[in-house]
Design a protein around this nucleic acid. Structure first.
Length: 577
RNA sequence: GGGCCUGUAGCUCAGUUGGUUAGAGCAGAGCGCUCAUAACGCUUUUGUCGUAGGUUCAAGUCCUACCGGGCCUACCA
C-alpha cells in the first residue's frame, strides 16, 4: 500500500467553470484518485476554491453583495457541481480559510527570515473613480502601435504587442470607463526567485518522466532572457490574506494582501489541515501528508493542472516551499493538460461559448461527460469537443459495448434460468481464452502497457481505450460461446457461460469505476454484490458470483442520445456565442 | 520577435530507444448471429505518414529548411 497525495488545480471563484477547466485538472485527478483507492492505496485527494484577487471583488460588486458572502455562495455552487460530477475529493476547501491565512503568513515570514523577500517600490495605476489600483489588464486605451482602441494595459489583442499601461493613449478603467487615473508610488514584496534558479533547475532535472509540456514550460521560464525573474507577491487590494510576517505586523505593508498566486497553492496544504479540522483530527493527521519530518517522506504527491498553471507549480510554489527551509513535501509528478476546444473554437467564459459545468449536468448524466471527456482528454495536444463526437462516443462505447453487454447477459439469464446465477457445467477453453485476453489488456507486456500501468502513469486517454477493449472482450466471448444455441443441446454448458458472463459484469463494474462511478454502482447494486475487491487474481475474480446468487436485471444503464436530441443540443448551445 | 507542441486512412487518434507487408475506434461495404438498448461478432476498401532536401544498409521515427494548426511569453487567474 502506498500513500498518494493528489491535488487538482484550484478553480477560481468568480463563476462556474466550463468543461475545459474540468477535463484539465479535476476530472483526470478524480479518475486517478479513484483508481488508486480501488487498488487499496491510502489516498488524499484535495481541491479548493481559489477566492482572492481582483476578479472576485469585481464579480461580487457586480452581484451587489459583499465579497466574502459572494465567495461563500459560489463555493457552495462549485461544491454542488463537483458532487454532481462525482468528484471524490477527500476535502474541498477554500483559500480564504483561516488555515490558509495562517500558513501563508507563516511561509512569507520564513522566506523573509531567509532573505528571500525584497521590498520594491513601484508605480501602479490608481483609479479615483473606482477607488482602487488597477491591474494592467484592467486598463484599456488606444494602442500606440496599431491604433486599436480597446487595447489592454498588458497587451494589445489586435497587434499582440506587449504594453505597459502607461503606453496607452487615452487610458481608461476597464471597470468603470473612468479616465480619472493617476500613477501612484506603492511598495510591494517580491519573492527573490532569481536567487533560487539553479536549485529549481536542478530539482526539475532530477524529476523522471514528467510530461514534456510540464518541463518545457518550466525550462522556458528558467532560461528565457535573463532567466527566472523575481515576482511580486503582494497587491493593493482589500480581499485576500493580509500581509503579515508570520504572526507579526509587517511595517509598511499595512492594508495590503498577498497576491493570489502566492496563497493559492499554499491552500493545497491548508485544505489538508481543514480536512483534519473537519474530521476532528489533530495536526499530526495532515502533517503526515505534508511534512517529511512527520511522516510524509513516503508520500507520492501528484498535481493535476491545465498548462496555464504550470509555471506556478514548477517554479513559484516550489520556490516558496524550498525557500522556507522547512521540510515540506515537494511534488513528485506534475500532470499538465492542453485545452479542450468547443466545435473547433475556444471555450470562452466571457462570451458564454461552450458548455459550463452546471449546464452539462442539466442536459446529460455525469457518467456520459466523464466518459467522453476522459477518453478524449487533451493529453498530447488540444482536443475538440463536438456534439457529434460526444454522441458517437457515448452511444457506441457506453450504450452499445458496455450497456448492451450487461443487458443481453442478464436478460438471457432471466429468461432461461431466472434472476439467479445458474449452476451446472464448468468453465472451459472459451473462458480460459477470454480470461487470458483480459489479463493481457490489464497487465500488458514489454511492448504494450496494460490498463493498470496506463492508469498508474496517468495516461488516462489510453487507459480508457484499453478499458473499452476489455468490454469488447465480453461481447466477443458471448459470440463464441453462444449460450443461446448451446442451451438447446447442453443447458449445463450454457449455464457455465452465463455464470462466467455475469462475473464479467461484476468485473467491469469494478474496473470501470474510476471512469463511470454511477453506472458502476448501479451494476453492483443490480448484481447484488458488495465485493468490489480489485482483480489482482483474475481467475478468482471470475468466481466471485457463485451459482445460486440472486440478482436483478438492471434498468437500461445508458440511454442513447438520438440524432434529434443532438441537433437540439447543438442549437441550444450554439445560440450563446 | 523568441520558445514549445503539432501536422499519419473520410473523421478522431496510436505508433516505444530508426529495422520486415504503417495500426485502432468511428464512418463505408460484405458476411454471420438472433441473447440484447435495430444491439453484438467476423471479414474488408482507402494512406507518396504536411512539403523539399539530408544522414543511414535501413526513417512516420534523426537533422535542416519551408508551409499549415495551436499554445506560452511572467500584473487575469
Amino acid at each position: 500500500m502506498s500513500r498518494i497525495l493528489i491535488t487538482s488545480a484550484l478553480p477560481y471563484i468568480n463563476g462556474i467553470k466550463h468543461l475545459g477547466n474540468l477535463v484539465g485538472s479535476q476530472l483526470p485527478a478524480d479518475a486517478y484518485a479513484r483508481f488508486m483507492r480501488a487498488r487499496g492505496n491510502d489516498v488524499m485527494f484535495i481541491c479548493a476554491t481559489d477566492e482572492h484577487g481582483t476578479p472576485a471583488e469585481l464579480a461580487a460588486a457586480k452581484a451587489g453583495i459583499p465579497v466574502a458572502e459572494f465567495c461563500a455562495d459560489m463555493w457552495q455552487v462549485q461544491k454542488d457541481i463537483a458532487d454532481g460530477f462525482r468528484l471524490s475529493f477527500d476535502y474541498f476547501g477554500r483559500s480564504s480559510s483561516q488555515r490558509n491565512r495562517d500558513l501563508t503568513q507563516h511561509l512569507a515570514g520564513k522566506l523573509a527570515d531567509n532573505g528571500l523577500i525584497e521590498e520594491v517600490s513601484e508605480k501602479q495605476v490608481y483609479s479615483n473613480a473606482d477607488g482602487r489600483y488597477l491591474p494592467d489588464r484592467y486598463i484599456e486605451g488606444t494602442c500606440p502601435n496599431c491604433g486599436f482602441e480597446n487595447a489592454r494595459g498588458d497587451q494589445c489583442e489586435n497587434c499582440t504587442k506587449q504594453l505597459n499601461p502607461t503606453d496607452l493613449i487615452n487610458p481608461r478603467s476597464a471597470i468603470s470607463g473612468s479616465t480619472d487615473l493617476e500613477v501612484r508610488e506603492t511598495k510591494h514584496l517580491y519573492l527573490r526567485q532569481s536567487t533560487m534558479r539553479d536549485r529549481l533547475d536542478a530539482w526539475i532535472d532530477s524529476q523522471q518522466g514528467w510530461p514534456i509540456l510540464t518541463t518545457s514550460i518550466a525550462k522556458k521560464w528558467l532560461h528565457d532572457g535573463d532567466g527566472l525573474r523575481d515576482r511580486g507577491i503582494t497587491r493593493d487590494l482589500d480581499w485576500g490574506v493580509p500581509v503579515k510576517r508570520g504572526t507579526e505586523e509587517w511595517p509598511g505593508m499595512e492594508g495590503k494582501v498577498f497576491y493570489v498566486w502566492f496563497d493559492a497553492p499554499i491552500e493545497y496544504i491548508a485544505a489538508t489541515a481543514e480536512w483534519a479540522d473537519a474530521n476532528g483530527l489533530d495536526d499530526a493527521a495532515w502533517e503526515s501528508w505534508w511534512r517529511t519530518d512527520k511522516g510524509a517522506e513516503d508520500v507520492h504527491y501528484v498535481q493535476f493542472m491545465g498548462k496555464d498553471n504550470v509555471p506556478f507549480h514548477t517554479l513559484s510554489f516550489p520556490a516558496t516551499l524550498m525557500g522556507s527551509d522547512e521540510p515540506w513535501k515537494m511534488v513528485d509528478f506534475i500532470k499538465s493538460y492542453n485545452w479542450l476546444t468547443y466545435e473547433g473554437g475556444k471555450f470562452s467564459t466571457s462570451q458564454g461559448r461552450g458548455i459550463f459545468m452546471n449546464q452539462a449536468l442539466e442536459v446529460m448524466p455525469s457518467d456520459y461527460w466523464r466518459w467522453w471527456l476522459l477518453s478524449n482528454a487533451p493529453e498530447s495536444s488540444d482536443s475538440d469537443f463536438t456534439w457529434e463526437s460526444f454522441q458517437g462516443g457515448v452511444n457506441k462505447d457506453l450504450a452499445d459495448v458496455l450497456g448492451n453487454f450487461v443487458s443481453r447477459v442478464t436478460k438471457f439469464c432471466r429468461s432461461k434460468f431466472g434472476e439467479v446465477v445458474p449452476e451446472g457445467g464448468e468453465y472451459g477453453k472459451f473462458e480460459e481464452a477470454t480470461t487470458a485476453t483480459i489479463k493481457y489488456l490489464l497487465e500488458g507486456d514489454e511492448e504494450r502497457l496494460g490498463y493498470f500501468k496506463l492508469m498508474e502513469s496517468i495516461e488516462i486517454r489510453k487507459a480508457a481505450h484499453v478499458l473499452r477493449g476489455i468490454w469488447v472482450a465480453g461481447n466477443e466471448y458471448l459470440q463464441i460461446a453462444a449460450p443461446w444455441s448451446m442451451y438447446k443441446k447442453d443447458p449445463d454448458a450454457a449455464a457455465a457461460t452465463v455464470r462466467y458472463a455475469l462475473n464479467l459484469i461484476r468485473l467491469y463494474a469494478v474496473l470501470s469505476e474510476p471512469f463511470i462511478p454511477d453506472a458502476s454502482a448501479k451494476i453492483l447494486k443490480a448484481m447484488n454484490v458488495t465485493d468490489t475487491s480489485w482483480p489482482d487474481d483474475l481467475e478468482a475474480a471470475m468466481e466471485v458470483l457463485p451459482a445460486g446468487h440472486a440478482f436483478e436485471v438492471p434498468e437500461v444503464l445508458f440511454a442513447k442520445i438520438t440524432d434529434d436530441r443532438r441537433v437540439e443540443l447543438e442549437e441550444q448551445f450554439a445560440g450563446q456565442g
